[in-house]
Simulated assay, not measured.
Amino acid sequence: MLTFPNAKINIGLHITEKRTDGFHNLESCFYPVGWCDALEILPAQELSFHNSGIPIPGDSQNNLCLKAYYLLKKDFDIPPVWIHLHKVVPIGAGLGGGSADGAFTITTLNKLFSLKLTTEQMQQYARQLGSDCAFFVENQPKYCFGKGDEFDEIGIHLKGKYIILVNPNIHISTAEAYTGILPHAAEVDLKEILKQPIAMWKDLVKNDFEKNLLLKYPVIANIKHELYQYGASYASMTGSGSTVFGIFDNTIDLKQAFNKYMIWQGELL
């Protein structure tokens, strides 16, 4: 079975509280985008994992696809599988690519072996893989809170808008991103602001990670500035960086303008 785990962007991101378990509470709007990996899972005689495309650092046994398989294997008598992941979405880029791979493994195994898991059950398995993973089970725009694994509906309508994502090939670890972050209550009601026309977002919808990271990596700040120069209605770094996105009212091709970087562009759904 072949699937295409997609990335997401954060529209607004506020770090609101340090938790007693070492994690942070946050609030954000997660929105799926079309930049995708390719994931194929087939029944096999023995379990195996293969990857191509962008090299994945670390021991392959720690890959979220395998971790997702083992999670379900504990509770269901599923056979071994052959997993091939072709990695396209950049790693450590604030796009949730690895989280999507893990979540799509859960949803694919559910279909492949007719496990009949509910959405809520699949989300619960996904939460054990990582904070962003559960979002990709439904894979719909959501207001996210808690560790980023609790959801509420959000009135945001971007269908038909055009998005450009620019990744400057900078890997930012979660630990680096949180250095210097001082959690605080959000100054604005994100859910209410995102109901407003996108032209009003520029000075109100913020990503708390930008304050330090745009100073540390001027190239990220330059990309954001250039996207506005090219006419973006709204531009921001996504997640903990380093990818920056711009949302445009109309189709625009900026591949040449950002030809030094990884770039994806397409319509929002």
Rank of each mutant, 00 (worst) to 15 (best):
Y143A: 08
T108M: 02
D59N: 15
E153R: 08
F258S: 13
K224E: 11
G160P: 07
T107F: 06
H184Y: 00
G266F: 07
G246L: 14
K116Q: 13
G130K: 01
N167S: 01
L214G: 02
P168M: 04
L47Q: 12
A134D: 08
K18F: 03
E267C: 03
Q196L: 15
L47F: 15
L215F: 00
W264E: 11
T108R: 04
E176Y: 05
D149F: 14
K116I: 00
K260R: 15
G246A: 11
D189H: 13
M262T: 07
S28P: 08
G160D: 05
A44M: 00
V166F: 01
H50Y: 12
G241I: 03
M262R: 13
N250W: 08
G12V: 07
K161P: 01
S99Y: 01
Q124A: 13
K67E: 04
L115E: 11
I181M: 04
H14N: 14
D59H: 12
I83A: 00
D189F: 04
E192S: 12
Q196S: 13
P90K: 04
S114M: 09
Q229H: 13
D203Q: 14
N212M: 10
S114I: 08
G241T: 05
F104D: 06
V89F: 05
S28D: 07
I193M: 10
A38V: 10
A126L: 07
G22H: 09
L158P: 04
Y217N: 08
K67V: 03
S60H: 14
I154P: 06
G146P: 13
L227G: 11
S240T: 12
Y217L: 01
D21T: 08
A221G: 13
K111R: 14
D101G: 03
Q123D: 01
A93C: 08
L269Y: 09
P90F: 02
T20R: 13
G241A: 05
G231K: 00
F135K: 05
D208V: 07
I54Y: 05
K147L: 14
Q61D: 13
H157A: 13
E27A: 05
K116S: 12
T16P: 05
G266L: 02
N51T: 14
S173V: 04
E153S: 12
T118W: 11
N63E: 12
H84D: 05
N207M: 08
L194K: 06
K206V: 13
Y178W: 04
S233M: 12
T243V: 04
E192N: 12
M200K: 14
K67W: 09
L42F: 12
T118V: 03
Q61P: 00
T108C: 04
W264A: 09
E176P: 14
N250G: 02
E17I: 00
E153A: 12
H184F: 03
V188T: 14
G12N: 10
V81A: 03
L72E: 11
L213C: 09
N222E: 15
